[in-house]
């Protein structure tokens, strides 16, 4: 008989919590189990989810990215401004993705070449991006373009009468699939794990640690920018003051999804489940109706602490 590899335990716990929350919702509220709720769960949390997938790579490598929320806000207002200035939406989106990736690569280069802690570099990046967002435009700007008002809606995949998978959810699911593939089936992905597990060993084993690090932050920057694009699809606007602290939600989703904050162990599908758990908590509280939405934060806080304790006890057991 094969023993279960301890690294799957947090993942199993995540799956259990997710299922339990869903079942609880279905038992308490008659409409909770409807297809629409599930579809919305994906659609409403798409940009958080995409950002969290980017964050998964960073955390797997033992780093952290605090710039996510600010990058999303910056990209959002950048796209809104460019489109209202007459740029075709596709060009604006492509440009935004390039900007996000270059910004991420720049953060990664600082971390690699000056051997700086990711926490500080991305903290600086966060302030920089937030400030730049306000430089682009100081207040919210609605996007009025046919692409946004019609095309995006037409891209939804109809499931049942009056229920369709929104384009944002499609983006999210596609990102999860691609990222899972990168993690498991590319050398880059495996290098991410090895750096997070033991950077020094990875270096001695000939893993290109430096370029991989830059790649990780570039990829995270790309996913943040993509999350920014998806946020404009969702909001139909850009707002420089939005998504403050979203990076922390993303980190919470990653950790609840079973990725070790110290790096080396974790799975992208886990992050998907982590995001869905956060969404389920929010939906539950919305259905309940009487509770203040701040209870969402309390529930997430408690859950996060429980998961950290779980991870610690597992990694502790592994050492012994």
């Amino acid at each position: 008989m094969k023993r279960i590899n301890p690294k799957y335990i947090p993942l199993a716990a995540t799956a259990l919590v997710m299922i339990a929350l869903y079942v609880l919702g279905c038992l308490l509220y008659p409409n909770f189990g409807s297809l629409r709720v599930v579809v919305n769960l994906f659609g409403d949390n798409a940009f958080l989810g995409i950002a969290a997938v980017g964050g998964t790579f960073v955390i797997l490598s033992g780093g952290i990215d605090l710039s996510v929320g600010a990058v999303i806000a910056f990209i959002g207002i950048l796209i809104a401004s460019l489109i209202s200035g007459g740029m075709p939406p596709m060009v604006a989106i492509a440009l935004a993705l390039v900007v996000g990736t270059v910004f991420g690569a720049a953060q990664g280069s600082l971390i690699r070449f000056f051997d700086l802690p990711p926490f500080l570099v991305t903290l600086g990046g966060m302030f920089l991006m937030r400030g730049l967002a306000f430089v682009v435009r100081a207040e919210s700007l609605a996007i009025k373009h046919r692409f946004y008002q019609q095309t995006i809606r037409q891209l939804a995949i109809p499931l049942a009468p009056r229920i369709a998978i929104p384009f944002t959810a499609i983006c999210f699911i596609a990102v999860v699939i691609v990222a899972t593939y990168i993690c498991i089936y590319t050398r880059f992905g495996r290098n991410v794990y090895s750096i997070g597990s033991s950077e020094n060993s990875a270096l001695l084993m000939g893993v290109p640690v430096g370029s991989t690090k830059i790649g990780i932050y570039a990829l995270a920057g790309f996913f943040s920018a993509l999350a920014g694009c998806v946020s404009t699809f969702y909001m139909q606007s850009g707002n420089p003051a939005s998504f403050v602290g979203l990076e922390l939600d993303a980190i919470a989703a990653v950790v609840i999804g079973g990725t070790l904050l110290t790096g080396g162990v974790g799975f992208v599908p886990g992050t998907l489940m982590g995001v869905l758990i956060l969404g389920l908590i929010q939906t539950l509280i919305t259905f309940q109706g009487n509770l203040n939405t701040w209870w969402t934060k309390i529930a997430i806080g408690v859950l996060l602490l429980l998961f950290i304790v779980l991870q610690k006890s597992i990694s502790g057991a592994r050492r012994a």
Partner: peptide
């Protein structure tokens, strides 16, 4: 000191950095 990656499998530790791939696909 053993300079390998503790969180990866034995097989992967042996092949890390030179995994056989087809079109970049491990």
């Amino acid at each position: 000191e053993v300079n390998l990656i503790p969180d990866l499998s034995v097989a992967e530790n042996i092949c890390l950095g030179r995994q056989p791939t087809v079109f970049g696909n491990i």
